[in-house]
Structures are given as structure tokens and as C-alpha cells.
Amino acid sequence: MRTVGVLAKAAGLSPDGVRYYERLGLLRPLARSPGGYRLYGEEALDRLRFIRQAQALGLSLKEIRALVEAMEEGHPPCAEVRQVLKEKVALLDRRIAELTALRQALASRLAWAEAHPDVACDGRDRCVYLDPLDPGASSRV
């Protein structure tokens, strides 16, 4: 049996981190010592490793809690994990596409700005390099 401090150290967490996961219902002590300290078994360390790995893969604590609840009900959450992973991959694909488009827009602006360093801005609330229209349109006016 491990106390919060010993468990936290073994898991690479702070004792407050362990207590936080407990408050969220992700972890439960097996017993209390005569002095009232929470005591955890070896499975608590496995649970903390599971939680940390799931977080490292982008799962939210809410998603992790649903998986933990399924495990505690006695059925492996494999189908749920696959679904969450599919959703995370799809989200990343969308974000990568958005970031790629943003990078292309920025690179295009930068290339135009570097090719036209003498274009004058009005010095107030706009810059032709950031103009929402075609960056070359302002220099032709």
C-alpha cells in the first residue's frame, strides 16, 4: 500500500495531482491508514500511468473519466477508445489543413511584402501588407 506522496512520486506527479484525479473520480484509495492517510494499491499506479498516457495522446479528462467508468463497470473500453482516437485524428487533420492554409497565406503575404518594401502604408490603421484584399491592389490605387 502506498500513501499519496509515495504514489505521486512513483507516478511522476505531485501529491496535489493525485488528489485532483481522486476528486474527479479517476482514482480511489483502497483504504485509510489508522492515521487517516489515503492508501493506494499497485493498480493506482497503473491507473495514473493510463491517465497520463491518455492525456499525452490528447484525451480530455472528461473522455478519460468515461473510459475509466467503463473499465470499472467491467468491460474493456476498446471500442470507445477507437472512436475517441478516430475523432482526435479527424480533428488534427482539420487543424493541420487550417494551419497549412494559414501558413500559405502568410508566406504569400511575406513574399509580396519582401518584393515590395517601398510600398507606403498610411501610418494609421492599416498596412498594405496586411490588407484583407489582394496585397497588390493598394499599390495600384
Results as ranks from 00 to 15, higher is better:
Leu45Met: 07
Tyr37Gly: 04
Met1Cys: 05
Ala111Leu: 02
Glu80Ser: 08
Lys88Ser: 01
Arg52Asn: 00
Ala66Ile: 01
Cys121His: 07
Tyr20Thr: 08
Pro29Thr: 09
Val119Ser: 04
Asp122His: 06
Ala8Val: 03
Cys78Glu: 13
Ala10Val: 05
Ala137Met: 12
Thr3Ile: 03
Ala137Asn: 12
Val6Lys: 13
His75Lys: 15
Tyr21Leu: 08
Gly41Asp: 15
Glu69Thr: 05
Val84Ile: 07
Arg109Val: 02
Gln53Thr: 12
Lys86Asn: 11
Ala113Glu: 10
Asp46Met: 09
Glu63Trp: 00
Arg28Phe: 07
Ala111Gly: 03
His75Tyr: 14
Val18Ile: 04
Ala11Asp: 03
Cys121Arg: 00
Leu7Trp: 05
Arg103Leu: 13
His75Ser: 15
Asp131Ile: 00
Ala115Ile: 06
Ser139Ala: 09
Gly58Val: 02
Arg47Gln: 15
Ala101Pro: 06
Leu30Pro: 00
Leu92Lys: 04
Ala11Asn: 07
Gly12Ile: 03
Lys9Val: 02
Gly5Ser: 12
Ala44Asn: 06
Glu80His: 08
Arg95Gly: 00
Pro77Cys: 06
Leu85Arg: 12
Pro29Tyr: 01
Ala79Cys: 06
Ala11Ile: 05
Glu43His: 11
Leu61Gln: 01
Ile64Ala: 01
Arg32Asn: 13
Lys88Tyr: 01
Leu7Ser: 10
Leu39Asn: 04
Asp16Trp: 04
Lys9Ala: 04
Ser33Ile: 03
Pro76Tyr: 10
Lys9Cys: 00
Tyr40Ala: 07
Tyr20Cys: 01
Trp112Asp: 13
Tyr20Lys: 06
Ile96Glu: 09
Leu130His: 05
Arg95Trp: 07
Leu57Arg: 10
Gly5Leu: 14
Met1Val: 09
Glu63Asn: 02
Lys86Gln: 13
Leu13Pro: 03
Val128Asn: 11
Leu133His: 15
Leu110Glu: 13
Ser33Arg: 01
Ala97Thr: 06
Val68Arg: 04
Arg23Asp: 15
Glu43Phe: 13
Ser138Met: 07
Ala97Gln: 12
Gln53Asp: 07
Arg19Ala: 05
Arg2Pro: 00
Ala90Phe: 00
Ala97Met: 00
Arg28Pro: 00
Ala120Cys: 15
Glu63Cys: 02
Asp93Ile: 01
Leu85Glu: 10
Gly25Arg: 07
Val128Met: 11
Pro29Ile: 03
Pro132Tyr: 13
Ala120Glu: 15
Ala66Phe: 01
Leu67Cys: 04
Leu110Gln: 14
Gly136Met: 09
Arg109Leu: 06
Asp131Ser: 11
Val18Phe: 04
Pro29Leu: 04
Asp134His: 11
Gly35Lys: 07
